[in-house]
């Protein structure tokens, strides 16, 4: 319950005031594409987590997942707004979220995977959080002002997410026979989607050369160390030699994304231009 005199923050406060960078058209297109890819990733994972709302195993974790979902959607909004500014063609954050088709979405396959049981959701979050956390940590120092401003804001949230998911992996992995079994199953279901996070697309490679993106090799190293440490505490084995699925970052998705977008975009597709 808000205390007396406590102002409800207006949604527009999400808007970051970022000046439009003075890039050549090619570079601007690259930064636009990459910003969209990050936005799609946070949106789809945020949407997936929001599906837990009202279905969590206990009230406290129901809220925890809703909070993380809201953090991710907040980050999504900043990114889409920045992308819309970069593009400068009058499209808004809503147009970018609600009016693009599945092949135009560039999120990695991991984040569109179904929630499964709580163990699957925790594992999906854990695999993503490590990537997200170390990426944002590096992006805070990006030469691109928009990306660095958004990363600085979201990094604090990602620091909580990685703590949340790591502790749950340990608790469940090193828990009961049942919970351990389920976490092993979750690793089996999801590990194959973790590699794509670190495979650099052409866009990402060019942005690395332009000095805007960090090298994903170093992010992968930090991720490996973190995963090894948490898995060891969780008495889970780090899988070796798994064939990694990829495609999402190039717009080739699993069948799941279509269903997500159908639900996510329903209102705008059915009633174009509808407003609150």
């Amino acid at each position: 319950m808000p205390e007396h005199g406590h102002k409800t923050p207006h949604l527009q406060e999400h808007l970051l005031n970022i000046p439009v960078p003075d890039y050549a058209p090619e570079l601007r297109q690259l930064v636009f594409d990459y910003t969209l890819q990050l936005a799609d990733t946070s949106l789809i994972l945020g949407h997936r987590l929001s599906e837990w709302c009202g279905h969590g195993p206990i009230l406290e974790q129901d809220l925890a997942m809703a909070n993380i979902a809201l953090d991710l959607i907040g980050e999504t909004r900043s990114l889409y707004q920045y992308a819309a500014t970069l593009e400068g063609k009058g499209r808004t954050e809503d147009d970018l979220a609600y009016l693009r088709s599945a092949v135009e979405y560039k999120n990695p396959l991991l984040v569109e995977q179904p929630n499964g049981d709580f163990g699957d959701t925790v594992m999906r979050q854990f695999l993503f959080d490590g990537f997200h956390y170390f990426l944002l940590k590096a992006l805070k120092h990006s030469s691109d002002q928009g990306l660095s401003a958004i990363a600085a804001k979201s990094f604090k949230e990602a620091s909580y997410h990685i703590k949340w998911s790591s502790e749950w992996v340990i608790r469940l992995g090193d828990g009961t026979e049942e919970s351990k079994h389920r976490m092993e199953k979750a690793v089996g279901n999801l590990w194959m989607y973790s590699g794509e996070l670190f495979m650099m697309t052409d866009t990402e490679k060019q942005l690395l050369e332009a000095g805007i993106l960090p090298d994903y090799t170093s992010i992968k190293q930090q991720w490996d160390e973190h995963v090894a440490k948490v898995f060891s505490e969780a008495t889970l084995e780090v899988p070796q030699q798994v064939y990694m699925q990829q495609g999402g970052k190039m717009g080739k998705h699993s069948e799941h994304l279509g269903y997500i977008l159908t639900e996510l975009q329903y209102l705008q597709r059915t009633y174009p231009g509808l407003e609150w």
Binding site: P2, E60, A64, R171
Partner: peptide
């Protein structure tokens, strides 16, 4: 876990 849950339940605003 109690502290984390408290953070999620009671400090959202």
């Amino acid at each position: 876990m109690a502290i984390q849950n408290a953070r999620d339940v009671y400090t959202r605003r």
